[in-house]
Design a binder for these strands. Sequence first.
RNA 1: CGGGAUGUAGCGCAGUCUGGUAGCGCACCUGGUUUGGGACCAGGGUGUCGGGGGUUCGAAUCCCUCCAUCCCGACCA
Length: 508
Amino acid sequence: MLGKAVKTAINPTRQEDYPEWYQQVIKAADLAEHSPVRGCMVIKPWGYALWENIQRVLDKMFKDTGHKNAYFPLFIPKSFLEKEAQHVEGFAKECAVVTHHRLQAGPDGKLIPAGELEEPLIVRPTSETIIGAMFAQWVQSYRDLPLLINQWANVVRWEMRTRLFLRTAEFLWQEGHTAHSTPREAVEETMKMLEVYSAFAQDYMAMPVIKGEKSESERFPGAVSTYSIEAMMQDRKALQAGTSHFLGQNFSHASGIKFLDSAGKEEYAWTTSWGVSTRLIGGLIMTHGDDDGIIVPPRLAPSHVVILPVLHGDEGSSGIFDYCDKLAAQLKAVQYYGRPIEAEVDKREGRGGDKVWSWIKKGIPLYLEIGPRDIASDSVFIGRRDKSRKERFGMQREEFLGKVSGILTDIQNNLFERAKAFRDSNMKIIDNKDEFYDYFTPKNKEKPETHGGFALSHWNGSAQVEEQVKKDLNVTIRCIPLDGEAESGKCVISGEKSGRRVIFAKSY
RNA sequence: CGGGAUGUAGCGCAGUCUGGUAGCGCACCUGGUUUGGGACCAGGGUGUCGGGGGUUCGAAUCCCUCCAUCCCGACCA
């Protein structure tokens, strides 16, 4: 038996210390760890398998909407970045710069950089400029448009403060870049991809999101308009989970993406870009995780079912292993949401309890404990990760094989409904300034408790109000929701006229 | 980059104030007991005390410096 003091697999609990809980969940699930390089993480197999599933699903969604994958260089000439004024201003402070192309031994035997480059190269923080330069060569005529390209890549942003998955110096993402002949078409593309992200977040990650437009101060550097999906984490802070930008003609002017229209007139193309990153995994953890670790939604789970043989020393293990192997094979023949169920038998040595808990901490949707009694009755003993360990139940093997896909669907739905109920119960319409300030101010300043949430309040549209709530409360406008209805009212801070509510929250 | 904290075995920590043989719990390895389950007994240390420099007969401990991580800001996906 484990020490009596331990009630949960993760210490501390979410309630006790949310940021520390987050770190411990990643460690317990073996998702990732810090590398010797500042701010950079090593993504371990269980975490990377999650990312691969995210990639697989999104990649299909991108292709189904007409996009094709390509790959562009890691390095961007400094002069390219300088072409778009707002863009360079937005990214200049967080760029890694390559200035030399070789090393040589110094007098003390240590390696020193040599061969200084004519023009420094920037390690891409995003690829608008290098892709724009290529687009300029690829586009001549309106017949070359639209150009719909996606890239799966790593990017580097030299952040001051990093957190695994949420903000690392290097991260994995996809960046879509498209060029169109009309602004209308480019805006449609921007909205279409926002919709793809929203569908992915909700249908696969079981993470409810709000689609909206960013205020000017939160806009991507160089964009005409930026849209995002915003999710609420369990500490009630907002996480920007994906962005889609309408870039107007800013980057086509900067990169010279020109085409002749059907009338033979030269025009600049209208471009978009959109991306999601490994940050999604951080969002997954903080949307579904509990005090026993991460809970992986079945549709993205690297493995759906683990079978744990309950071994008895005297009886030998071969009979139990045979039964488990057969069960695993039968499970793999079952389809769940368009792909075969992933099942594995955990044949590691070691005590049963340790093994079960290791899978609980990894968040596997279903764990089966199979011993002689189950074999004798041809049944399985089932634990659901979205339910308490006390709620395990038995079922005939044949019946389970018929129902397993439905159980996974039920878990997927349960996770979504649970997260949505949590978010909705922490969204509040606030029309009064005092109430607004009270909502976002912790009672205990020394050790702030979980507080706040999403405030749905009126805003007069001024950056001054944004600055004020940011300074006073560290609260920002997360987005101007797209699905909400116009409603006239008064700005919660300034009292001036407002045409609609926006979402205020603290954020990651 | 500003403020605060931390860095000692795989993990969690004590030892640092007051310098004198590197410790504890868990994990791990060996043997045994146990077995529907986060066990027990016995034995085993697997370490550049974050790195570098200094003070000293002697440094985990004192001084300088650098690095990394965490929290709160500023910046951001």
